[in-house]
Design a binder for these strands. Structure first.
Length: 384
DNA sequence: AAGTCACGCAACCGCAAAAAA
DNA sequence: GTTTTTTGCGGTTGCGTGACT
């Protein structure tokens, strides 16, 4: 342990990078790979510390970085993931391919945090500042459920991040990590189908809810996707599905996982329909039991999932007595008064946003997140 | 036109975990 | 098992730029 003497060394340059320095770094890494960051500056002829080089590379020079404005979907994903994970930017970044944790962090701090605060929502807890609203109608219970999910997801992401790191060590290219079968080392997602075609979808995501979607659906279809065990049934009424996300650090010997869920989303998109209609309409409390296996850890989560507040009626979703037709993003953006959805047809439903209905918005905030998490398909969101 | 302010972003700092010796 | 080194992460800072007065 201990700190590495780094930029405090005299003679090393600090501050903004010049194009020449960028060129040197880029050229060196392209030719040799970064290897040891500590040794890199000398080899590359840079008067920088290794740390500075690594940062410059990962946050700016890396070729697979997308720059520029964040899309609505990306914003939505960040907010949803932040609600689940908090300030774990690297974990969030794994779900936003081509975005760096630093960029996401900056975007959160400069844009999204303010927007939430403007809505009267605490950007740290994602709860309305007037928390009394929640306790009266069972919202706190739902929030607790989500918190439970967050804990599980958080642990899963840690394992996922570690696996991604491991797989990155083995290969310079993400593409090279994809085996023809789609079974590769990496993040722990339940596999859906070995025959999933290679998709251009750049999505890097495996999420508990996606797994749930797929699991429920596959379960009801009798598919061979996730290791889904329906306790007392096959995902039907009152059943308790057991979804296992089986991960391994380098092979398929103990299970099947898929890198970033790259091939899953199409299947899951199809399955989300079934999920909604077969499961979310359940009036009864449904309990989910999920477990994550990894050579280093086994995480189990058992908890009540009470979707009675998510009663679907036609294309609407009812949260309590409130009919939510719009997604979380529209709620947020309309309320911010800064932007509006391109789909203007729905804007009128939101009573003009800009704080008129702040009370209701606050009340529905978590439910909206939940709704989006559950209802999103890969078409709707980069997450699912 | 000049000064001030706010904002966005790149980069730095320090801590802690992981890996190596 | 312990110590040292390396890497990764999150918080924070400071500079450049555009808007505003």
């Amino acid at each position: 342990m201990g700190r590495s003497p780094c930029c405090d060394k005299v003679g090393l340059k600090k501050g903004p990078w010049t194009p020449e320095e960028d060129q040197k770094l880029l050229a060196y890494i392209e030719e040799h790979g970064h290897g040891s960051w500590r040794a890199l500056p000398a080899k590359a002829g840079l008067q920088r510390c290794g740390k500075s080089c690594r940062l410059r590379w990962t946050n700016y020079l890396r070729p697979d970085i997308k720059r520029g404005k964040f899309s609505l979907q990306e914003e939505q994903t960040i907010i949803q993931l932040h609600a689940l994970l908090g300030n774990r930017w690297s974990a969030i970044a794994t779900h936003l391919p081509k975005r760096t944790d630093n960029e996401i962090k900056n975007y959160w701090n400069t844009h999204l945090k303010k927007r939430l605060a403007k809505m009267g929502i605490d950007p740290v807890t994602h709860k309305p500042k007037n928390d009394a609203l929640l306790s009266s109608d069972g919202q706190s219970k739902n929030a607790a459920n989500l918190s439970h999910m967050a804990q599980w997801e958080s642990a899963r992401l840690e394992a996922e991040a570690r696996l991604v790191r491991e797989s990155k060590l083995r290969s310079h290219s993400f593409q090279e990590q994809l085996s023809p079968t789609g079974y590769v080392s990496g993040s722990g997602s339940g596999s859906v189908s070995a025959s999933a075609s290679t998709s251009a979808q750049p999505q890097q995501c495996v999420d508990v809810l996606k797994a749930w979607n797929g699991g429920w659906s596959k379960s009801s279809e009798g598919g061979n996707g996730l290791n889904t065990t329906g306790i007392g049934g096959t995902g039907g009424e009152n059943s308790i599905p057991m979804i296992e996300l089986v991960g391994t650090s380098g092979s398929s010997e103990t299970g099947i996982i898929k890198e970033e869920g790259e091939h899953d989303w199409k299947n899951l998109r199809n399955s989300s329909h079934h999920y909604h209609h077969h499961h979310l309409m359940h009036e009864n409390t449904v309990s989910l039991t999920s477990s994550l296996h990894h050579p280093d850890m086994t995480i189990s989560m058992e908890g009540p999932w009470t979707p009675e507040f998510l009663k679907l009626s036609s294309s609407h979703i009812h949260v309590g007595n409130v009919d939510i037709e719009e997604g979380f993003t529209s709620l947020l953006l309309n309320d911010s008064g800064e932007r509006s959805l391109s789909d203007s047809g729905k804007d009128s439903d939101n009573s003009g946003g800009s704080g008129n209905d702040c009370y209701e918005d606050n009340k529905n905030y978590w439910n909206s997140i939940l709704y989006n998490l559950v209802n999103s398909s890969p078409t709707d969101s980069p997450m699912f």
